[in-house]
């Protein structure tokens, strides 16, 4: 084992960690907004809105993220749309996570007892008020554990942005390996770095799950 080579390339690894975190954070934030909107659209009584949301969710859950990345980065230029690497990575990860988050949120909304809606409606609350004050606060707690669980997989899925040349952690690691021929050391360190990001999040999921069980 030769750890010196890894140590000498630390700046590249650190940069990779930051770019990975950045991509994950942006995709998680935008994906959550898109997901919430799609989940609400799924409950809409307007058939067109409902179908559009269903179509989007089905499409992005039903195809591999890798293919979505390829399509946006390598495919779209043939339609005259050139996208930058970072933009392509963000768009693909956002749309992909939005589709999953929509289903997680929808399950949470549906977990709120129907009687809660009856009561709120019979008091004259409007639909947005009903969502804001009655449904979402109750759905939130149930939704959090699977939601954070999904965020963890988004962090790991950022490594797929490797294939379109985005300099996230894994890509930078690969370039260190190419230069130093020390794959074992580098992969071990990279694995440890991903783990260091994801493990606290999965501890959080476990704690949230306990809290949800306690309120049942």
């Amino acid at each position: 084992m030769d750890w010196q080579a890894v140590w000498d390339s630390r700046s590249l690894l650190i940069e990779g960690v930051f770019l990975t975190l950045e991509l994950a954070a942006v995709a998680i934030c935008l994906g959550s907004v898109v997901g919430l909107a799609a989940a609400l659209a799924r409950t809409s009584r307007l058939a067109v809105v409902n179908w559009a949301a269903q179509g989007y969710i089905g499409l992005f859950r039903g195809t591999p993220l890798l293919m979505q990345l390829f399509f946006i980065y390598f495919g779209l230029p043939y339609l005259g749309v050139n996208v930058d690497r970072a933009v392509a990575a963000i768009v693909a990860l956002t749309l992909y996570s939005g589709a999953y988050i929509a289903e997680i949120v929808r399950a949470g909304i549906e977990s709120v007892a129907k009687g809660q809606r009856d009561a709120a409606q019979s008091l004259g609350l409007s639909f947005p008020q009903l969502m804001r004050y009655v449904v979402i606060p109750q759905a939130g707690l149930v939704t959090l554990p699977p939601l954070v669980g999904f965020y963890i997989s988004v962090v790991k899925d950022t490594s797929l942005a490797y294939v379109i040349g985005y300099s996230e952690l894994l890509r930078n690691a690969q370039s260190i390996i190419d230069r130093t021929a020390r794959p074992i050391e580098v992969y071990l360190v990279v694995g440890l770095l991903y783990f260091a990001i994801c493990f606290p999040l999965s501890r959080m999921v476990a704690r949230l799950e306990k809290r949800v069980m306690a309120t049942r």
Binding site: G115, Q116, D118, A119, A120, Q121, S122, G124, S126, V134
Partner: peptide
């Protein structure tokens, strides 16, 4: 909504928040 402010309803399962 006006109708609902004029008619109160109480349910079998209470349905408190």
């Amino acid at each position: 909504r006006q109708v609902r402010t004029r008619v109160g309803m109480v349910f079998q399962q209470f349905n408190l928040f």
